[in-house]
Design a protein around this nucleic acid. Structure first.
Lengths: 240, 240
DNA sequence: ACTTTATTGTATCAAAATGATACAATAGTA
DNA sequence: TACTATTGTATCATTTTGATACAATAAAGT
């Protein structure tokens, strides 16, 4: 199943902001892996982040949300800007043109789409289980990939993922980010596992539990009977 | 004295990246005040940050450096990107056109310069005493203004200053930022004064001294005989 | 020369946060 | 009933931070 996307928007002068694009780094968590959402474009291009252009009537944030919905089928997600990428050669000419030539529209050789542009990076965390990645007509697939095992990506998208991850790490404590990465209810071990994966380092179980509980942001629910021969952990959910 | 600026760069298609600009928030410190560098454009416009467009051949960072040099006479300064501003109405139409009509060049009504654009914000800290603000031909003046006493600024430049200040505060400790705001040598009181002004809150003298000294980044020099009837403070400079 | 004053550098103590270890409780298995 | 693996919590040591005390000192006043 593919998303509808209005290809006329790619045509010059039909309501797009020239030279500007947005790219989205969407993090998910599954099987103890931190994942990122990537599109496999048609043709032989490397995988890329869901990205697109900005309409004249919308804000950058709105553009990021719309693009994410159109290209990956992900909607109603809180996105945060983390950096703007603008190296003159960031969209390597030949790759860039090859990519846009796979799009079934006529592009003038002088169209700004074929030239340099600046891309504003947005990132978000989302519950892996609640998202159904859906590729658009320009892509063969849309799927999750382990952040720590990425193949080479298109353009400067590797750098984008790295910088988004750095931002995520630095905001993990202060912004109590990372909440959207887990399902509704979870155990303390699930949460610690998430933290360890994002930070890529081991944490001391007892102190992690103390720290999180002292934040007073969790509501303790019933125990989770795992069937294992040991004490059952409590389930938690985030307070509102 | 005014800087030379090549006005042809404003003409459409002569090597500029459409729809994109950079704006610079330059902080200085003097008389116990945190200052920001502003231009007074010719005509009746509000004051504005030194900003300009991006040439096709340069990176965003290079553009910011060049623009700062051309418009305010400030050179060789380390700039850091802090946010990108892209609200659809951020350059209010009438003010925007009025401003660009003061520039002595012909602009087509359809020129992107008269339309919406996105601006990438850069900020920097600099030694007040080492900068000689110099306006360009488009401006009547270029001067320092107290960050906490700003009049209304052009476009969304107030928001830019606020966000730059927020970034500065959050990075003050971790990045040991704020060093460029003081002259070569200084007393502990000078440094504390700077911190208090940036954070806009009082700090305990003894603990501040302990904290800074424990960082092991200062080299203690001779005492500074102030002429006052009390113990003379040491001078310090930053280790390399 | 001695006292006074304002300020500086450092020590000290209490409180809070963090790191590390110990241990009892418990859901199942042998 | 004993055993095992894991969980929740307590405890203690260490480090960090907040608050106060105090001796040292450069100059002025007497």
């Amino acid at each position: 199943m593919q998303n509808k996307i209005d290809l006329t928007i790619f045509r010059h002068g039909t309501g797009l902001l020239p030279s500007v694009s947005v790219d989205c780094v969407i993090f998910g968590f599954h099987d103890s892996q931190l994942k990122v959402l990537l599109l496999q474009p048609k043709g032989s291009c490397n995988k890329m982040l869901p990205g697109g252009f900005v309409q004249l009537s919308e804000s950058l944030n709105e553009a990021a949300q719309r693009v994410l919905q159109e290209r990956a089928g992900v909607k109603e997600i809180y996105l945060e800007q983390f950096y703007t990428f603008g190296a003159p050669n960031r969209t390597d000419d030949t790759i860039h043109k090859r990519y846009f030539n796979t799009i079934p529209i006529d592009l003038d050789e002088n169209d700004w789409i074929l030239k340099r542009f600046v891309s504003i990076g947005y990132y978000a965390l989302t519950d892996f289980t609640k998202v159904k990645p859906t590729p658009d007509v320009l892509s063969d697939s849309c799927d999750w990939y382990d952040v720590y095992q990425l193949s080479e990506l298109a353009f400067d998208h590797q750098e984008m993922v790295e910088r988004a991850l750095k931002t995520l790490r630095s905001k993990l404590d202060s912004d109590l980010v990372g909440f959207n990465l887990l399902p509704e209810v979870f155990t303390m071990q699930d949460l610690q596992n998430l933290y360890e994966t994002i930070l890529n380092e081991a944490l001391l179980r007892t102190n992690f539990q103390r720290k999180i509980l002292n934040l007073n942001i969790l509501e303790r629910l019933e125990k989770k009977m795992t069937g294992a021969a040991n004490k059952a952990p409590y389930l938690y959910k985030f307070k509102k």
